[in-house]
Design a binder for these strands. Structure first.
Lengths: 199, 199
DNA sequence: TATCTAATTAGATATTTATCTAATTTTATG
DNA sequence: CATAAAATTAGATAAATATCTAATTAGATA
């Protein structure tokens, strides 16, 4: 099973005290290999070794400046993987959805189960398809062509959910919106993330 | 560092495909050792081995009936550990709290930062102390001596947060309330979880 | 070009660990 | 008490992996 390996690899990446300490150090900000080696009292090759594993699991990113490589946390993926894993293990994907409906489309069921009567988003779906449906539902209330400041957008999102930062990021990530010079604007619908047959 | 080992062990427990498959099977409901061995095509000792690791990490529970041992997921701890780990790595504990205040008590800052103006709980604090403060804040609005049905209690909690199930469980777990015959009631304040000097 | 620094790659070693078979323990039952 | 069924424990083995030193590569600069 594909999904399973991915999740196991995520946990393998975190199943080592040295790598955990690296992430901990990086939570303060980026660091280069040498600095990490020193802080951890390890050789540089050892740091390279662990960095490779963390990179494979998409938990860190790297940038090169001259001949020094700076490592940084990738908090978005750390969070995504943590949620996906929890979901996978406990099948909590369905916990809001009491039972998988048969006579209604996925979209209807997401709208019914993840949004409260007052229209607020109960929780961000962790399953990919469902998340996209929820995002799209919100994004459809934005005005095409209008330029939103970050503040505007945050306020808009807060109507639905407190965690505006995550949702704003998702809007960009899935190409519902784009940002230029700190101004956010809707993408044309054709560019919105397409996913397989969500009827 | 103590915390670190605990979190690493949690991930070690999940960093193996066999154990992941066990949890997956258990997400459907409890199973005994033989059944697991058969489903996984492994010997019974191997199952025992993995079960021990999962138990050490508090991810499963076991009950014995006659001479067969039934394993079951411990979804509460799975979730707790996932959140604690995420928190630990990304230091998200402070993410709602923009900066650690100096001139106000922890309690004031939790109330200010985790509760919205309308009184709702933005998110359940993941840090232990802060979580207790938030729980206590809510629990103080319950009537001493009143007997709450589960429905009553859910409604009460939903005033604050959608995830009433988790919060209800926390109320019990930290001895703010107790349940008897499906009726919930406040514990006297003296029994509420005491924590170190949260002034 | 020669040299210096940071990083990676290669290769070796020791530790951890997933799995098995065989033996033992636990609990129930004829 | 003898037998049976399920589980655990003991011990062995093979695979995975964390770490090191030595050698190499990448990039910058004198």
């Amino acid at each position: 099973m594909m999904q399973l390996d991915k999740i196991v690899n995520y946990h393998k990446a975190l199943a080592d005290p040295t790598r955990m300490r690296i992430l901990l150090l990086l939570s303060e900000g980026e660091m280069n290999g040498q600095a990490l080696a020193e802080k951890l009292n390890l050789s540089q090759p050892t740091v390279t070794h662990h960095a490779a594993k963390l990179r494979e699991a998409a938990l860190i990113t790297e940038r090169r400046d001259k001949n020094v490589v700076y490592f940084a946390q990738n908090p978005y993926f750390i969070k995504q993987h943590a949620e996906a894993s929890l979901q996978f293990i406990t099948k909590m994907g369905e916990d809001v959805m009491t039972a998988e409906p048969v006579n209604e489309t996925l979209k209807t069921s997401v709208l019914r189960n993840f949004f409260a009567k007052d229209g607020r988003l109960r929780q961000i779906p962790a399953q990919y398809k469902k998340k996209l449906i929820a995002l799209q539902h919100m994004v459809e209330e934005l005005e095409p062509g209008r330029q939103y400041t970050e503040r505007d957008l945050n306020e808009f999102i807060k109507q639905y959910h407190e965690d505006f930062a995550t949702i704003r990021r998702e809007f960009i990530m899935h190409h519902f919106m784009y940002r230029e010079n700190d101004i956010y604007e809707l993408n044309p619908r054709e560019q919105w993330t397409k996913w397989e047959q969500v009827k």
